[in-house]
């Protein structure tokens, strides 16, 4: 089992080494990830949203709907953890600290 896992890891390593040659060099300013919408966020972000912190401008304003979905995801995960623990145990709200 350990040998199979090691062989699979080696296969994944070969795929990564092959794929990394196609990635842009570290610190390239015009890499594809920084070319499409990112210049607009940097150049107009403060002017349009009033947020000095561009990460907040992207998170709460340009992509606010994303953040709403993400907040729902963690809320659902918290409820799931609560129900997984609570189900089966003789548990109730009574006698619990508020």
């Amino acid at each position: 089992m350990k040998a199979t896992a090691f062989a699979l890891t080696l296969v994944a390593a070969a795929v990564f080494i092959h794929a990394s040659s196609a990635l842009p060099a570290f610190g390239t300013a015009d890499a594809p990830a920084s070319a499409h919408v990112s210049p607009r966020y940097i150049e107009r972000g403060y002017e349009e949203t009033g947020a000095h912190n561009l990460v907040t401008a992207v998170l709460a304003d340009y992509r606010g709907y994303d953040t709403l979905g993400e907040t729902t995801v963690i809320f659902t995960a918290g409820l799931a953890a609560l129900l997984i623990i609570g189900a089966g145990a003789a548990w109730s709200w009574e006698g619990r600290p508020r």
């Binding site: 570290f26 390239t28 300013a29 990830a33 920084s34 210049p39 940097i42 972000g45 990460v55 992207v58």
Partner: peptide
């Protein structure tokens, strides 16, 4: 997100026209 010779994606008030090459990409951070 990294760019050589770029700084944090926080635009100060005294920079009226921020250049895209001067700040690192905020999108992967968000």
């Amino acid at each position: 997100a990294a760019k050589t010779d770029a700084t944090l994606p926080i635009v100060p008030t005294d920079d009226p026209a921020p250049a895209a090459a001067a700040y690192i990409n905020p999108l992967p951070h968000a």
